[in-house]
C-alpha cells in the first residue's frame, strides 16, 4: 500500500484508542449490484477479474457442472455458481449466481484477523486484504459467514475480491462491472444501487416472481455487494447463499467477551501473587531445622 488513502474506518487487530488514518472519511458508500435475473452465465466477469488482477488459476477439470473452476481459490476471486432448480410445478430454473466477497459492513474476516492492518475497511465500504501483512493463519476463513477467503498454496497468504479497490479509488467501476455484456452487474453509490434494485424487484414481482427481492443481509450490517434474486425468500437455492448470515457466536465470544474476561483473570492472578508475597512473605525452611538436620546427618 504505497498510496495512502487515509480513509480506513476499520483495521484488523487494532485498538480503538489507536485508529488507522481516517481523516478523509466523507466518501459515499459504494455497492456492486448483481441482478441474478439478468445474468446469462457467460463468465465474462470471471475473465475480466482474472485479466485486471493478473490472476491465472490452474486449468481445472470438468466436474459435471458448468462451475469452472470448481471453487473459489487464491487465484479465482469471483466464480459463477450454476444451480438447476425445479419449482413446485416441475418447471426447471437455471439459477446463476456470481459468487465472491460480499464486502460486509461488519466483516467477520476483519473481526477474526489477529494481525494489525492485514484487513482494512475503507470509508466507501470496501473490505481489503493487505497481503504483505498477512500471516497465513486462516482466521479470516473462520470469520467469514460466506466462505470466501482462500489461502494461497504459493505464498501462504489469504486472497479474495478487492472490489477492484485500485480502480474504484481512481473513479472507475470494478472490472467485472465494466465487462458484463447484459448489464447484470452495476456499480455506484449504495443508495443508488438499492434504488435501482428496488425498481427491478417491483418489475419482477409484476411479472409473477412474487418472492423477488434484494439480498442485502442486515445480520452483517448490510453488504457492499447486493443481489437482486428472483427468489429472495429462498436464498439457499442460489448455491447455499445463507438466509441470515451472521458472524458466528463462537467468533463473537472469542473476539468479544473472552478478551476482557481473560484480561481480568490475568490481572487478578498477577495481583494475587504480588499481594500474597508481600503479605505472607517467602516460605522458608526454619534456620534451626536446617542446622539440626545438618547436625544429625553429618
Amino acid at each position: 500500500m504505497s498510496m495512502q488513502s487515509q480513509d480506513i474506518i476499520k483495521r484488523s487487530a487494532t485498538n480503538v484508542l489507536t485508529p488507522a488514518p481516517r481523516a478523509r472519511d466523507h466518501q459515499a458508500e459504494v455497492a456492486k449490484l448483481i441482478d441474478v435475473s439478468i445474468c446469462i452465465g457467460c463468465k465474462a466477469c470471471q475473465v475480466a477479474c482474472n485479466e485486471w488482477n493478473d490472476l491465472r488459476d490452474e486449468v481445472g477439470h470438468n466436474v459435471g457442472v458448468y462451475d469452472n473452476p470448481a471453487d473459489l481459490s487464491a487465484e479465482t476471486w469471483t466464480l459463477m455458481r450454476f444451480d438447476e432448480v425445479e419449482d413446485e410445478s416441475g418447471k426447471l430454473e437455471w439459477l446463476i449466481r456470481k459468487d465472491g466477497c460480499m464486502h460486509c459492513a461488519d466483516p467477520g474476516c476483519l473481526k477474526a484477523c489477529p494481525q494489525p492492518g492485514a484487513i482494512i475497511q475503507y470509508a466507501n465500504g470496501i473490505v481489503d486484504f493487505q497481503s504483505d501483512h498477512c500471516i497465513g493463519c486462516g482466521y479470516c476463513i473462520a470469520g467469514c459467514p460466506f466462505d470466501v477467503p482462500r489461502i494461497s498454496k504459493k505464498d501462504n497468504k489469504a486472497y479474495k475480491c478487492t472490489l477492484c479497490v485500485d480502480r474504484v479509488s481512481v473513479g472507475q467501476e470494478p472490472a467485472c462491472v465494466k465487462t458484463c455484456p447484459t448489464g447484470a452487474i452495476n456499480f455506484g453509490s449504495k443508495q443508488d444501487m438499492l434504488h435501482q434494485a428496488s425498481e427491478r424487484v417491483t418489475e419482477l414481482q409484476g411479472r409473477g416472481f412474487a418472492g423477488a427481492g434484494i439480498y442485502d443481509p442486515q445480520g452483517v450490517g448490510g453488504t457492499h455487494v447486493v443481489y437482486v434474486l428472483q427468489h429472495a425468500d429462498k436464498p439457499h437455492l442460489y448455491h447455499k447463499l445463507p438466509t441470515d448470515p451472521r458472524i458466528s457466536s463462537a467468533i463473537h465470544g472469542w473476539k468479544g467477551w473472552l478478551k476482557p474476561v481473560a484480561a481480568v483473570a490475568f490481572f487478578a492472578t498477577l495481583a494475587g501473587t504480588l499481594f500474597h508475597y508481600v503479605g505472607v512473605g517467602p516460605n522458608e525452611v526454619e534456620e534451626a531445622d536446617e542446622k539440626h538436620e545438618e547436625d544429625t546427618h553429618a
Binding site: Y139, A142, I251, G253, P282
Partner: peptide, 30 residues
Amino acid sequence: IRIGLLVHAIAGICLILLIIGHAYLAFWVK
C-alpha cells in the same frame, strides 16, 4: 474450526494462568 479457535484460546489462557501460579509458588517456596 470456529469451535477449535474458541476452545484453543480458552485453554491457552487457562494454561498460562496455571503456569503463572506454578512459577509463583516455586518462587514463594524457597
